[in-house]
Write a protein that binds this DNA or RNA. Structure first.
Lengths: 189, 189
DNA sequence: CGTCTATTTGAATGTACTCAAAAGCGGTGG
DNA sequence: CCACCGCTTTTGAGTACATTCAAATAGACG
């Protein structure tokens, strides 16, 4: 049985016996992604949900003018996908790229359905996962509508210490919703 | 057995037999809320998650300067609470008020735990509920960072037709994250 | 070492806020 | 039923925040 980080992640909320672990593992597909490689392209159908075993990824939308908006970063032990696309099998609004050489494990829709069917505890796991994701996103919405750019920047750096080493200023700006030029002057204070 | 809308809502995603329905109903507490009354006050501990049987509510944060930021509206058949507070039993960041005379059914934390324990299917129900909530909030974040105020206003009106009759311009402005004055000039076009 | 991209800086412009005042609207009490 | 009150909405002038465009500098990478 492989020694995946995803096991520890899952077992933060539910307990699996060896048989269950084995079955779960049989559904996982490991994928290696080189830096700058896309694991999902905007416009495609998103087939999988990913868990980051190693490295870091970024999900972003590109509009008609080519402007990128970063929706989320995902580091080790994070889950990432274009959830809307994955759930509803619509065209992806997001692209997902590796910020460095990375390794993820992926679950496709059928695998996830089978998992829910065979080990209903996983409903609980994902219930808690989505519950937390919802809380985070709602918090984020509150920040957008109530804080200044400077305050948002501080909170962001604070919430993800060391992130400034992994991602560019430009990417942080595109997550905060401002231009890189303006973020630069904000940092100058 | 009462004829609550919440049954139909739950049965959109899972199926309940009569015994299960009865048990579920036994956990529900009906509450009537007068217009402008608060069902949760910022700073308190949030005890319940609510389903709107009748009427409409609004969840909002008030900052040190007294500025209100509307996090969500909830109409008939919507679920609402301060999820962060409900889950982590921390002080509420949000207040929840009735926009008109309303009727909700509430589930407290113990009831919900008991429900998950007795009828695990509810894990699935809430998994789907939170999954959709997460998708919506992430979409909303994308709108904040990539769209103009005018575009956000259009999408909002479009997504919730008739909402302009139920809530004030000021409340919509506080949801979009702009001042009522500015929203007024945007509408003038 | 040279190229490409990110970051900084600045000037000019546009977007959004503050403050103030007037007009509109709804609810309440006489 | 009307008159008044309080709050919302509109409008405008002045200011602050944020963008665009351009150019210079700094870093990353082959």
């Amino acid at each position: 049985m492989g020694n995946y980080r995803i096991f520890n992640n899952v077992q933060k909320h539910i307990t699996l016996n060896d048989v269950e672990k084995q079955y779960f593992e049989s559904l996982l597909k490991v994928e290696r992604i080189a830096k700058k490689e896309l694991i999902l392209k905007q416009g495609q159908i998103c087939k999988k949900i990913y868990f980051v075993e190693l490295g870091s990824l970024r999900a972003f939308n590109t509009n008609e003018d080519g402007k990128e908006s970063t929706i989320m970063f995902a580091f080790q032990n994070w889950w990432i996908t274009d959830m809307s696309c994955f759930v509803n099998q619509k065209q992806a609004l997001l692209s997902i790229e590796a910020l460095e050489d990375s390794q993820v494990v992926g679950l496709d829709g059928n695998a996830l359905e089978a998992l829910f069917d065979k080990i209903p505890k996983f409903e609980r796991f994902f219930r808690i996962l989505f519950q937390n994701a919802y809380i985070r996103e709602q918090q984020r919405a509150l920040h957008y509508i109530s804080l200044t750019t400077e305050e948002r920047y501080r909170k962001f750096i604070n919430k993800y210490p060391g992130i400034a080493d992994k991602v560019t200023q430009k990417q942080i700006a595109s997550y905060l919703g401002v231009t890189p030029e303006f973020l630069s002057t904000v940092k100058r204070k």
